[in-house]
């Protein structure tokens, strides 16, 4: 009759034998197996590395968003400029005067935003060489910026993709870059230290010969939040959004939106 200690020793011996047997029977990997496994591993490592590289590069794409932010800020500040200038010129909040509100000095369509209604979209047109002497009759020649209505609705943002970018560009929202020779800076011309301007071109305006389309599109969105035409409203409030879109290095649509609520502080 074996004792308990002998049983344990016997069990260990059996385990050892089983292990040795299994080890001797174990087949090594064949060459194709090794090649396939290494290939799979190599594919995983290289694709992971590629993904990481793309992530890092996308991060560096932030520089483009800085330009987009500058353009968006230009849009927002332009509407603020219009609001403040209206007060200085003695005009109503929307740039109209008197009871006939059919026309605003900043673009005929802005007058419609004085009453509550749906949001509307505009291009920001710049007059880079405004007249320096103006009276009532030629005031429009002295204004550095104006708005032009475009046929865009809020629906465009429901599925914001590459097609949306094309739609915006087709609607005239494309931002152009105009570069000129600048003798002051050595006259190195386009691509050198030439003077440049980002601009939008109106639907009826011809594109200047030295202007080329950029990847950016810009829209100004005006949404009346409160109107004194309503019984309880004490002040007009206009929500202004300046939206700049572009495609990043990987072709994905990007968007910068700056929003501010402007009140009729006059």
């Amino acid at each position: 009759m074996p004792t308990g200690r002998q049983n344990i020793a016997k069990g260990r011996q059996l385990q050892k034998n089983r292990f040795r047997k299994r080890f001797k029977q174990a087949r090594a990997f064949t060459l194709p197996e090794v090649i396939v496994s290494f290939s799979v591993l190599a594919m995983v490592v290289t694709s992971a590395a590629g993904l990481l590289t793309v992530v890092i590069r996308t991060n560096a794409d932030n520089v483009n968003s800085l330009v987009a932010n500058g353009l968006a800020q230009e849009g927002l500040e332009s509407v603020r400029f219009m609001r403040d200038s209206n007060a200085l010129l003695g005009l109503d909040f929307d740039g109209t005067k008197g009871t006939v509100k059919s026309q605003s000095i900043w673009g005929a369509e802005w007058a419609a935003t004085n009453v509550l209604g749906p949001s509307s979209y505009y291009l920001l047109l710049s007059n880079f060489e405004p007249q320096v002497n103006c009276g009532v009759n030629n005031l429009a020649d002295c204004l550095p910026v104006s708005l032009k209505s475009v046929d865009i609705t809020d629906d465009i943002w429901t599925e914001f993709n590459v097609i949306s970018l094309e739609q915006l560009a087709n609607a005239g929202a494309r931002v152009y870059l105009r570069e000129q020779n600048n003798e002051q800076n050595g006259g190195q011309g386009s691509g050198g230290n030439g003077a440049f301007r980002y601009m939008q071109i109106g639907p009826n305006d011809s594109q200047p010969a030295d202007a080329r389309p950029t990847q950016y599109s810009r829209l100004i969105r005006l949404e009346p939040l409160q109107s004194t035409d309503e019984p309880d409203a004490v002040v007009d409030v206009l929500r202004v959004s300046s939206i700049v879109t572009w495609a990043d290095a990987n072709g994905r649509p990007r968007k910068v939106v700056l929003t501010s609520d402007l009140t009729d502080w006059k």
């Binding site: 603020r80 400029f81 403040d84 200038s85 200085l88 010129l89 405004p130 007249q131 320096v132 002497n133 103006c134 009276g135 009532v136 005031l139 002295c142 204004l143 550095p144």
Partner: peptide, 20 residues
């Protein structure tokens, strides 16, 4: 812009300077 001080006395009659 504008290319003149809006608060200057001489600019009061020139609307081109009456801008922010």
């Amino acid at each position: 812009l504008p290319a003149g001080d809006p608060s200057a006395a001489a600019a009061q009659t020139n609307l081109a300077t009456q801008l922010k």
